[in-house]
Design a protein around this nucleic acid. Structure first.
Lengths: 322, 322
DNA sequence: TCAAAAGTGTTATCCTTACACCCATGT
DNA sequence: ACATGGGTGTAAGGATAACACTTTTGA
């Protein structure tokens, strides 16, 4: 079998012909003061990124190196998000591929060391329509809804109108539908398609009836951020990843506020508590907070043991005995 | 903002310095005769793959092109699995990176056109310990368990032994734990670590007390296959992807057998039926099967409309009113 | 008539959701 | 006293799991 390893390479043409440049991009998330923040560089409109180099031991270590260099921040939890390819023009006519490998990283903002500090930015600055903690944000009814209706009306035929409207309604919860906080990417893509985000109008001359809503980012970084947010909003529901964002000891309310910041929705306090307790995700530290107001709360820490013990597995199949 | 796009490229050194070769690898799955099969090339021990080239319009279209060229098979549903990097030596000392981007694709074996046909192979040939449709396969108790116990005993200290044993027990359901069909990758990695799969012993001289169990593949293809299986086993539980593997019309039992083939477990017929019905995933075609045996079954088709209507969203947070 | 598969009814149990309420502290 | 947050009790409703049973065909 050993010798057949060569077979994988069989069709490979001379390397230089279509080698690609590889970029690593990080969505680094922390929650501070009940705001979900993302680590940015430049004019706070780019995600930390850099080329994958021969000196890097692995993709992840390359990513760590770049983030640390650009922001002074050390990363803990990392997971891969998505890989995509773009055509890039270098020099005259010669084209080259750029492969971008994006990652989601979770930390606590305090882990910073050096020049970062000001580089954190609430992700709702980029996605104002995503924060439903105080109900649906006004921007949806005031700006997005009318413009999306106009976009729907661009279509001539009824079935085509209906299709656009249905997509918009599902994404934003129109027509009495529920808001679904996980559809972050779909919403961004819809707004992009409807030319309601700045990124969509690049390359064309600026329109007088300006687009809107949300700070834009360079290249497709806002799209990558949307992907990261969506992944995280989905993942907190079936893996104990929130704790990566928490200090070593915390109260239930702090934990709840963090989840609320991420999901952009309010949760039911008593039931949230029971949900966490029942899964045995935390244990008491024995201490209580000396909070300024209200009854002192017990402090808890994450039970790291659960990561070994259990597998969280979600069966949804009606398995049979035997 | 436009001009700041240049900022992304700021740190980029001369392109050739560390450009990478990009490979696309496909795990193409079909289910035929109640066997989950994977499309292979070569001596049926490699996954279809090929370099990403400038001529490819996108990563996915590059993948489609390679699979079609190597197997004559056209792909329908595709999703990205994972991207990883390896060091590759070309020529003398010069090292280069190889980036592998893997995909999961779902089709029906009949879609083949050309030389494929014999290239399909049950994925349980590669992972015999994964098929629990007739109870736990003997290979686990007969071969894997004793060898895993030996591997556990390699450790000197008790806590280290315990840690290895706990991992094995969770992965394989020892100690009265439940079998978890989603842990495909963990199991493969465990067996790799314990040198119980051929891939782990490459580079060293062949051991007399030979490893075992499961046909090996070139390079890390079996690991990629494990990733694909795990992803699919997990995904069929919360997205209607099984239908990509079904013919246009099918009976409940056929659907059930397909799910069983994928998950490697038996499901409860009446409850499975209700589960599908209740989600309104299918509709009657009006026809019935002329089966050889038993009462004729109604034929159903997938309700493609559900993909637009619903979002399947899985809330697991105790949301509050207001 | 029997085997094999299709299909329905019904119950016990658990999880989720919602509502109601009491507790402890600072001002 | 009361505002604020901490924390518990409990019951309704829905989903899941398990068991029992009837129906329809071909051999």
């Amino acid at each position: 079998m050993q010798d057949q390893t060569a077979a994988t390479r069989k069709g490979r043409p001379p390397a230089k012909a279509h080698d690609a440049h590889v970029d690593l991009i990080a969505v680094v998330v922390a929650v501070t003061d009940q705001e979900p923040s993302v680590l940015t560089v430049g004019q706070a409109n780019a995600l930390p990124s850099g080329p994958f180099e021969l000196g890097h031991r692995s993709l992840q270590s390359g990513l760590r190196a770049w983030v640390e260099q650009q922001t002074g921040h050390q990363l803990g939890y990392i997971e891969q998000l998505y890989t995509f390819a773009d055509r890039d023009r270098i020099g005259e006519q010669r084209q080259q591929r750029v492969i971008s490998i994006s990652y989601l990283a979770l930390t606590r903002a305090e882990h910073a060391a050096g020049p970062s500090k000001r580089a954190w930015r609430s992700w709702y600055d980029f996605f104002p329509w995503e924060d439903h903690r105080s109900g649906a944000p006004p921007v949806i009814a005031d700006t997005l809804l009318p413009r999306l209706l106009a976009w729907v009306d661009e279509r001539d035929h009824d079935p085509l109108k209906r299709e656009r409207w249905q997509r918009a309604a599902i994404a934003f919860g129109f027509d009495g539908r529920d808001w679904n906080e996980e559809l972050v990417l779909q919403r961004y893509e819809l707004l992009y398609e409807a030319a309601l985000v700045e990124e969509a109008t690049r390359g064309s001359e600026p329109n007088k009836s300006l687009p809107i809503s949300g700070i834009s980012m360079i290249a497709d970084h806002r799209r990558i951020l949307a992907t990261g947010i969506a992944r995280l909003r989905s993942k907190i529901k079936y893996r104990p990843v929130v704790f990566e964002l928490m200090p070593p000891a915390f109260t239930f309310l702090q934990l709840q506020r963090t989840v609320e910041a991420l999901s952009g929705r309010l949760v039911h306090k008593p039931n949230f508590r029971r949900l966490i307790e029942q899964q045995e995700l935390v244990e008491e530290t024995g201490e209580t907070t000396a909070d300024t107001v209200g009854r002192p709360a017990k402090l808890f820490r994450f039970r790291h043991a659960v990561l070994d013990e259990r597998v969280v597995a979600g069966t949804k199949l009606p398995l049979s005995r035997a």
